[in-house]
Every structure is written in C-alpha cells, then in structure tokens.
Amino acid sequence: MNKLNKLGYVVLIGCLSFAFVACDDDSDKHTLLKNDCLKWTAGPNIAGLDIEFAYAMALPYNTGKIVSAQAEASIAGADGTWMEHNSYYTTASGQMDIPVLVGNPSATNGKTTTVDFVVDTCAATLRYYYKIPEAAKGQSVSFTFSTTASTGEKVSYNMGPYTISKMDMALDLSLSRANCYISIEDMAVYNAQQAAEIPEKIDLVYNFLNLSSTGIEFGHAFAAPAAGPDFLPTGFPENLHKNAKIRKGSVMDAHLARLHLSGKLQPEVYVDDIDLQTIDLANMPNYALNIITDGGLWVETQDGKYRAFIYANNMRTIVGGTISMKRYTMK
C-alpha cells in the first residue's frame, strides 16, 4: 500500500460524506429566521379528534421580530381548528407550560390558520390543533407551517402526509338492565322498546348475571340476539334476530380508555384501521362472558359490514357499566 493508494482512499471517503450532505434540506439555511415543528399526537387520526403540533420559530436577538405564524392544511380542518396565541416555556425549576401571550387569537379561513403577533419577540412556539373533518376520512392530509419576520424573511416547514383513519368512535356509552341493546351501525345503546322498532340494527345485547354461587363465570356478558336464551336477558324482544362474531381480547386503547383522566398510567396503545381489517374473527362465537373493567371484545356484524372494538371502561360489581367503541366500515 503506497501513499497514492492511501490518498485515494481518503478522497473516496470524503466524496461519500458529500453524498449525505447533498441530501440535507437547506431551504432556510441562509436566513436568520429559523423554524421547526413537532407532531405531538400519537395513534390513528380519527375524525373529530385533534392532530396537535408545536411550531417553533426564532431569529437572533436584536435582528428583528416575528410578525406572524401560519398553518395551512391540505384539507380544511373542521370547526375547532385553531392555533394558540400563547407561547409556552418551562421554568428552571421544571414548572411546565407557562403561557406568554404573543399574538391575537388565531383566525382560520378555509385551509389556513394565522396568528398575528402583537408583542416584540424573536422566538415563540405556538401549538396548532387541527380538528380532523369527516370529509378527510381515508385521505391523507399535509401541513405547511410558515412564519414571517419583520426583516421580510419568510420560512416554512412541511409536515405529513398523515393518513386519516376510516374509523368512527363513540365514547362512554352507558349500559344498564334497561338500556342493554347495542347497535354497531348507530354506535348507540337502546332500551327494549326502542330496539324492537329497529331489529335490523341491534347487533349485541348486554346482560349481567351473578352466578358465582354455582361456580359459573357469567358476570357482564355480550351476546348477539341470535345467541340463544342462555345468554340473553329477560324481556328480550322476540323480533331481534341478528347474529355476530365476537372475540374477547383486551387492548387498553388510549383513545377509548383514557386512563390518565383517572390518574392511572395510560399506555400509548391504539386500535388502528389495520387491526380491525386483519383481526381473525372466523369461527368466533356469538357471545362473550365475564367482561371486566379494562376488558374488551372484537365484533363483526352479521353482514360483515362493520367491525368494532369495544372497550369496557367501567363494569360495576352489579349490573351496569360504561363502554366505548371504535368502528370500522368494511364494505
């Protein structure tokens, strides 16, 4: 190995490093104004929920001030889309989210949300909440964040695309001895009289029996109307007839469980579209017994049109409880 070969080797390594440098996005490299963005929300993007971002912008001290910040979505957000006009910081002692007012309340016009700054500041981080519209289901949405400084400079930052889920969600449906007829199609709970009027929509029936003295674990049960009298409550309307496939299985879905609201640790676990598309429900029975708090069940309606994941938020020691549901339309 002579000096020439060594030199060639060094040149080769040097050229390789340029290959990476060449891929760097340097759109705002030569401006004083800089910006960056984080997506805060995790999990599937479901219509009605927010996608939350933190958009940061800054320029060197004494070189100018920030004039405005803007977020533009590729699909207009639903009512409730907004950008905070407060910037937040954390104190040295670790106190989180101290607000500092920097601008006028945001104005949303179609796809664009803008905050005009009213204070002389060279740095801010604004939070942007995009309320996912029904119209975006099954599509992708992208965002362009931009900011303008008093120096005339303008920089932007692209986020996305993010796929919007086809799922629907219903939270905190209350179950009782009277209100025990569940429609996946309506994502609602009915009483016997209401259920008898819409038999084609009733997919599940909730029942509670305490058979612990006999050693039978029945407890809180969910069964299709076609499951038979062993599983159904007294007073069951005779014209209910639909069948379903039901699979027990617990997922502490963060959208449905919201354990953090009661001071518990909420795992960042989500039921997503693909889970409902691929869960194996072939040959599953039409009932599930002994569903407890934090338990769950996967359901497919008789016609295969809907699949749902039902989470048991709170099942009491006596009859009654609260459930939440994610539903996916299969066809």
Partner: peptide
C-alpha cells in the same frame, strides 16, 4: 373447562 367455553378456539 368453564361453562360456555368456546371449544373451537
């Protein structure tokens, strides 16, 4: 096995 166990699965 428990009463009503789904023996198919």
């Amino acid at each position: 096995v428990k009463w009503a166990t789904d023996l198919k699965n």
